[in-house]
């Protein structure tokens, strides 16, 4: 029985990665939930928006590296982030003007907009691949670790190491700042409040003199920023591959729905619920169980509940359970 080492192993392989992944999902889900709240459709092109913003960050990072600009121990991508956000913002505003705006004017059914967003997804997908191809790219530079497993073992004298990567801490910090800014914006500023009002009751917002086109524009800007931040954090933490971002759509939607579509707080909670479930259920607990069990004993198998290939099944199962038992999500989202 070695509780401390078990805890360290669990932290190292579950808590730390799941926190980072949860933060990435949460910011992604915030974008989806804002679009849903204001524009009232599920945006299937959100994964590509994330990929697009991240791609620009990656390209600008490459430029900065060539010019010898860096942030020292921090990834250069942080410096490139504003460029990615600006590019993503330009892209979504252009899409809105050329595509979505028409359907708002004719008051199209929400499901129509979902199909439209499929078309947008296809186009963005093509553009992405034409610009950057389909290769797997890493663009994280700077200091790789904040705590190295070996150092941790030396400090603590434990046999189990704990490694914390810079990107993981960075993810959490950036996510906290982003969420704090977003909530300040939504709850304290006039524009943010008008967005919430519009999401709450469109007709009354119009009566109150809130300009819907302005609300929509600001929403896209915020969504572009969130998507780029989420995509960049994910890309820094793992790697950049356009294809992967499309696959993230399912866990991101699951997070948003589990939390309650339209509820920003719900999106954050949903992100962490999905991330922790995914990683806990697909983690091989052999090490942890060995530490916890009697000395000298260790389990035969990996003690892994599900193969990691089935992580989508976890998001999906949670999604279905929530939809069946609490259709409006954990935090009451929109039921319309």
């Amino acid at each position: 029985m070695d509780f401390l080492n078990a805890l360290v192993a669990f932290t190292n392989f579950v808590i730390v990665p799941a926190s980072a992944y949860g933060a990435q999902l949460a910011i992604g889900a915030l974008g989806v939930t804002l679009i849903y709240g204001i524009l009232r459709f599920s945006n299937f092109a959100h994964g590509e928006t994330m990929a697009f913003g991240t791609m620009v960050v990656l390209l600008v990072t490459g430029l900065f590296q060539q010019w010898g600009i860096s942030l020292g121990p921090l990834p250069t991508a942080l410096l490139a982030l504003p460029f990615g956000i600006a590019a993503a913002a330009a892209l979504v505003l252009f899409t809105d003007k050329t595509v979505y705006k028409f359907y708002r004017r004719v008051k199209a059914a929400p499901v129509m907009l979902v199909i439209v967003s499929m078309g947008v997804m296809f186009m963005m997908n093509g553009i992405l691949r034409m610009i950057i191809g389909t290769d797997d790219r890493r663009f994280a530079d700077g200091e790789r670790f904040i705590i190295r497993a070996r150092d941790f073992k030396e400090w603590t004298g434990l046999s189990e190491g704990l490694a914390i990567r810079t990107t993981q801490v960075l993810t959490i910090v950036v996510a906290l700042i982003t969420v704090a800014l977003l909530f300040w914006f939504l709850n304290k500023t006039r524009t943010g409040k008008s967005m919430r009002a519009y999401s709450d009751n469109e007709d009354l917002a119009l009566l109150s003199g809130i300009n819907p086109e302005r609300v929509v524009m600001i929403t896209w800007l915020v969504v572009a920023a969130l998507a780029t931040v989420a995509g960049t954090l994910y890309g820094l933490d793992k790697s950049f591959k356009p294809f992967v971002y499309m696959q993230l759509l399912l866990p991101i939607f699951a997070s948003a729905i589990v939390g309650g579509l339209g509820s920003p707080l719900g999106a954050i909670a949903g992100g962490f619920v999905i991330a922790f479930s995914e990683i806990t259920l697909t983690y091989a607990f052999k090490k942890v169980v060995t530490y916890l069990g009697p000395d000298g004993w260790s389990p035969d198998g990996l003690v892994q509940l599900l193969s990691t290939d089935y992580k989508f099944a976890v998001s999906f199962a949670i999604l279905i359970i929530v939809l069946l038992f609490k259709p409006t999500g954990l935090f009451k989202g929109k039921s319309v």
């Binding site: 409040k193 919430r196 009002a197 009751n201 007709d203 917002a205 109150s208 003199g209 809130i210």
Partner: peptide, 19 residues
């Protein structure tokens, strides 16, 4: 549907004064 349900009462009034 004459209020903003998820906003506080005060915020409802503020939205009334939006213009």
């Amino acid at each position: 549907r004459n209020i903003f349900p998820t906003m506080s009462v005060r915020e409802n009034l503020e939205m009334g004064a939006f213009i």
